[in-house]
Amino acid sequence: MADLNDLSALMRSARRGDDEAYRRLLGEVTVWLRVVVRRGLASAGRSATDCEDIVQETLLAMHLKRDTWDEARPIAPWLRAIARHKLADHLRRRGFADHVDIDDHADAPELAVEADPASPLDSRQMLASLPERQRRIVQEISLEGRRAADVALGLGMTEGAVRVTLHRALKALAVVYRRDRS
């Protein structure tokens, strides 16, 4: 990724309803976040075990709070601010009170990190805290890659209702992440 600010074009397209742009944006941000979070954990003297958790929690926050990015401003400070907030929040829950910094050089792709396959958080366990219907919808859309319209057919719901339930599920999931699990 050349420059984090290049992502603003993708975010603008995503806001106009371009799913593919949003998928690409989230993919790029994920790659960047893994680097940033890993460094943040290292500088706090923590192992990288929780890295993928924090990446997911941060992505979820960026998604749910995407209205707070003002198109007239550069997107990089906004992305960094959310990453810093989530990382600091995570460390605070584990008793680390110092200031956390997201350094600017973290944008460099030198340290592209793969997801840790042994992420401590099992998907099913994470989703298990959701109500039945919410869990099924998230599972079918994310784990099984089905489209909202197809999920709606299978469950005998309207597509709109599936999307509303999915949105509630994501909000609930953000709360689950925020709760301390250690």
Binding site: G17, D19, Y22, R23, L26, G27, T30, E52, V55, Q56, L59, L60, H63, A115, S119, L121, S123, M126, L127, V138, I141, S142, L143, G145, R147, A148, R163, L166, H167, A169, L170
Partner: peptide, 14 residues
């Protein structure tokens, strides 16, 4: 949930 799977859920949440 893998991060890529989470991304799918986020994209679907238009």
């Amino acid at each position: 949930m893998k991060t890529e799977q989470l991304v799918e859920a986020l994209v679907a949440d238009r």
